[in-house]
Write a protein that binds this DNA or RNA. Structure first.
Lengths: 204, 204
DNA sequence: TAGGCCATGTAATGTGTTACATGATTAG
DNA sequence: CTAATCATGTAACACATTACATGGCCTA
């Protein structure tokens, strides 16, 4: 199960279930998301297995905080999961499915509207990741050879997110070009030709 | 629910649950996957809603085939789903999580091994999509303005897949370069220096 | 005093996977 | 005769979402 291992990875630094939920929803972790209602029971299970330990701490405001931390056994489990090879699941990408079936609308204006909406969402997501990258550059410089050891992998993960969103955005531009040209061509077809010249011969 | 709408889209051409399952597992649909054990009950529900109709046909070999087809109401539901804006779910990408937490191994050779394994899988996936693209080019030419109308959206979906995999592969190369350089630098650090020259002053 | 954030969780429901059950036909 | 492919499905389990419950403290 992936969420378990992701929590093990995150809890090498102690945190509460609430903290983890916030990290997910603030997009600190662009590669995963979980609701708190899923996080709390999972933390309980991991503690039962001995992969996490926990203790209580008073909160500045609000109720007591239950702080968790990965144990040695938990770290071993995380390492086993990492060494187990890439966990590439089958993609379920509803937005590509939408692109695929968009001809059901038979309305290029609608298609264009939807692709532009995608572009808007992905631009926002990319901006967030690029802000993270800028911060890294400002702090440690642009030369990756000089980044501290423990930044290498998190930074690589960030780069993956950036590359993926850029690819999506490039696709939006490519697709908008194609759709717009087609729309223009169709508009022209429907315009009554002032002088048919010799094109008429090819008709049907 | 996405699977329902994807089946509605696919069943504009009549097919059986078995056929749909084969399309998913043969990668004809690179953006979605479902087991037959999920497909059959979903088809039943869609028929109850009146979004699909079905009839039986004898099979060439094997038991009777139950063929489904999208109804007018089903098509309307599909269109509503398409017009509803982009369905961009929160990503759950275990492989990026692995990249992120890989420092837990503290072993660059292992990191490199895992990134190479990712590259291998994605190369295969890309090759399949590119083969599909080649086929399109061979049949309809490379100029998208001249593709038939009903190919436009499926082809755009294919392009998205290709761009995504290319981005992943570019990331693999970038990451392998960084990791290899770092490995080399570390090996050099650990090699006993034959003549420390004046670098010794900076130690600690 | 109302709403937001802190902080814990449970319950019900929805979605997806794995394992199992059944049985015909065909190719090796 | 064995295995693969065709073809249907159910059942048990695992994972994820939405809604609900509780209550203190802080700010506007």
């Amino acid at each position: 199960m992936s969420l378990e291992h992701i929590l093990l990875g995150m809890l090498r630094e102690p945190a509460t279930g609430y903290d983890l939920g916030r990290e997910f929803s603030e997009g600190a972790q662009h590669f995963w998301y979980a609701e708190r209602s899923q996080i709390y029971p999972t933390l309980g299970r991991l503690e039962d297995k001995g992969w996490l330990r926990s203790w209580n701490e008073p909160s500045e405001r609000g109720p007591e905080r239950k702080v968790y931390e990965t144990t040695e056994e938990g770290l071993a489990a995380l390492r086993a999961w990492l060494r187990d090879g890439p966990h590439i699941g089958r993609d379920r990408l509803a937005y590509i499915a939408q692109a695929f079936f968009l001809d059901a609308l038979d309305d290029l204006d609608e298609s264009i509207r939807i692709v532009k909406a995608m572009r808007g969402k992905w631009r926002e997501a990319l901006a967030m990741l690029e802000a993270g990258e800028d911060e890294v550059h400002a702090t440690f410089g642009e030369n990756r050879d000089e980044h501290p050891d423990d930044l290498v992998h998190p930074y690589a993960a960030l780069r993956m997110g950036i590359r993926q969103y850029r690819a999506k955005l490039a696709w939006c531009e490519e697709t908008l070009t194609v759709l717009t040209r087609r729309l223009a061509a169709r508009a022209q077809d429907e315009t009554p030709q002032p002088a048919p010249t010799e094109v008429g011969a090819v008709k049907e």
